[in-house]
Design a binder for these strands. Structure first.
Length: 281
DNA sequence: AGTGTCGCCTGAATGC
DNA sequence: TGCATTCAGGCGACAC
């Protein structure tokens, strides 16, 4: 489940093969992922040099000379594989899109569940796209601070867990890192967003920044599908404090697992939340 | 405007 | 063994 750290690692992985290089052709092995892939995408991108690559939330944007570009989302199961020029590559099931670069390198987009997307997007207009127009700040930028979060949550009567998952509040946070950040901030996922104090918002902002930073350092979290662009696994999943840790001891308090304490799983708006009911008030 | 629900999609895990 | 069911979940569409 690629969230901000995983997308950041993928972006760093494809940077060397894409940026400054010319796209020879783009092969579409099917017409659609979550949305139809624009029919003219191969035509628009072929023969153009990639000038820049950036990440915004969970999206990767690439722009070619002239300003055209693409915007890519990995969805739930999206994996990007970089194939080196001399490398023998046996194509796999769900290899939906292949960028073939001059010089022989390839970037393969595989997505079994097809919740991912690939669209065209001009550099001058990308921030007007529906996905970006309402998107909240990047969590690792300075503009995401306690004051911002406090104001963003002020009118929200949803749970703080739901608010963290809302890309309009903050970009790039998904289920795993929302659970982990709430744990480090000592805040229950069931709290109503607008009930958080200034101080709690400050704690939560620092927890989000900290957990995302550590996850990027660890190469992201590999649960089912996620891989680095060279096929390696991330290893932040070994550092989870609460996510998928039901029944394990809480690292921040001495609640008795034998007596029914420890990390608990609940379902909020159809998604699993993991937390320690004693430590997280 | 904010909120809740649905559906997309496949593969792994579970149930009978 | 084999078939059916459940679950994972980001996010856009939609209703209220």
């Amino acid at each position: 489940m690629p969230e901000l750290p995983e997308v950041e690692i993928v972006k760093r992985g494809i940077e060397p093969v894409l940026v400054g290089q010319v796209i020879e052709r783009v092969v579409l092995n099917r017409p659609d992922l979550r949305f139809p892939i624009p029919e003219d995408l191969p035509h628009v991108l072929a023969g153009r040099r990639v000038c820049s690559l950036r990440r915004r939330g969970k999206y990767i944007l690439g722009f070619v000379d002239g300003g055209d570009g693409f915007v890519l989302h990995l969805g739930m199961s999206g994996v990007i594989k970089v194939v080196q020029p001399e490398e023998v590559y046996e194509s796999q099931k769900h290899d939906h899109v292949v960028f073939e670069m001059e010089g022989g390198g390839r970037v393969v987009f595989n997505d079994s569940r097809r919740f991912g997307s690939l669209l065209l997007c001009h550099e001058a207009r990308w921030h007007m796209e529906p996905a970006f127009i309402k998107m909240g700040p990047e969590p690792l930028e300075v503009e995401f601070d306690g004051r911002y979060l406090f104001l963003a949550l002020r009118r929200r009567r949803v749970t703080v867990k739901a608010a963290l998952l809302d890309q309009a509040v903050v970009a790039g946070v998904g289920n795993i890192y929302a659970c982990e950040a709430l744990f480090f901030a000592g805040i229950s996922p069931e709290r109503i967003a607008c009930s958080l104090s200034d101080e709690e918002c400050e704690l939560l902002v620092q927890a989000v920044k900290d957990v995302l930073g550590r996850a990027i350092e660890a190469g992201g979290s590999s649960l089912k599908d996620y891989r680095h662009t060279d096929g390696d696994l991330g290893y932040f999943q070994h550092q989870f404090s609460v996510y998928d840790q039901s029944g394990k001891a809480c690292a921040r308090c001495d609640c008795d697992v034998e007596a029914g304490g420890g990390v608990r799983r609940i379902v909020q708006s159809g998604r699993s939340s993991f937390y320690c009911p004693r430590w997280q008030a």
